[in-house]
Simulated assay, not measured.
Amino acid sequence: MPALRKMKLLTFLLLLVFLTSFFLNYTSTVMTTNWLFRKILKLPQRPCTCSRCIGDLEVSSWFAQRFNQTMQPVLTAHNSLLEEDTYSWWRKLQREKIPRNLNDTIRELFSLVPGDTDPMLDNEAVGCRRCAVVGNSGNLKASQYGAQIDEHDFVLRMNKAPTLGFEADVGSKTTHHLVYPESFKELGENVSMILVPFKITDLLWVISATTNGTISRTYVPVPTKIKVKKEKILIYHPGFIKYVFDNWLQGHGRYPSTGILSVIFSLHVCDEVDLYGFGADSKGNWHHYWENNPSAGAFRKTGVHDGDFESNVTAALASIHKIRIFKGR
Rank of each mutant, 00 (worst) to 15 (best):
S143T: 11
L102E: 00
N139W: 03
A142D: 15
D122S: 00
V74R: 07
E167Q: 15
K160W: 14
G115F: 13
G146K: 11
R66M: 01
L109A: 03
L109Q: 06
L75W: 11
Q69F: 15
S80N: 15
R157A: 03
N123Q: 11
T105L: 09
N139I: 06
V74G: 09
E124H: 06
P114H: 04
S60L: 07
R107F: 13
G127D: 08
L156D: 02
D150G: 04
M71E: 14
S143C: 08
R129P: 01
P114N: 03
C131Y: 14
Y87A: 02
L75Y: 10
S80V: 00
V113W: 07
N79G: 03
L75M: 08
I106W: 12
I149H: 03
S88G: 00
A77C: 09
K92P: 01
P99R: 02
K92S: 09
G146P: 10
C128R: 08
L140Y: 10
Q94W: 13
V155G: 01
A125Q: 15
G115T: 08
S60T: 06
L112N: 03
F110E: 05
Y145M: 05
Q65E: 15
A125N: 09
L112I: 05
F166T: 00
L75S: 08
E151F: 07
I149L: 04
W90Y: 09
F154I: 02
V155P: 07
L140F: 11
L81Q: 12
L112R: 08
D122W: 06
F166Q: 01
D85F: 06
R107V: 00
G135W: 04
F154T: 03
T105K: 02
E151N: 10
R130P: 04
G135L: 08
D122Q: 00
S88V: 05
F67A: 00
Q144A: 13
N159F: 11
G165C: 04
W62M: 05
G138H: 09
L121D: 01
G115P: 03
F110I: 07
T70N: 14
S143W: 09
P114L: 06
C128I: 05
L81S: 08
T105R: 07
S111A: 14
A142F: 15
L81F: 15
R130H: 12
A147R: 15
N136A: 06
W89V: 02
N103E: 13
F154L: 12
V74E: 12
Q148H: 14
R130F: 07
F67C: 02
V134A: 03
L75N: 06
A147C: 08
I106N: 01
D153N: 12
Q69D: 10
G146A: 05
A161D: 15
C131P: 10
G135Q: 09
Q144W: 14
F110Y: 15
E96Q: 06
M120H: 09
N136Y: 11
G115Y: 11
I98H: 13
I98A: 03
Q72T: 11
S111Y: 09
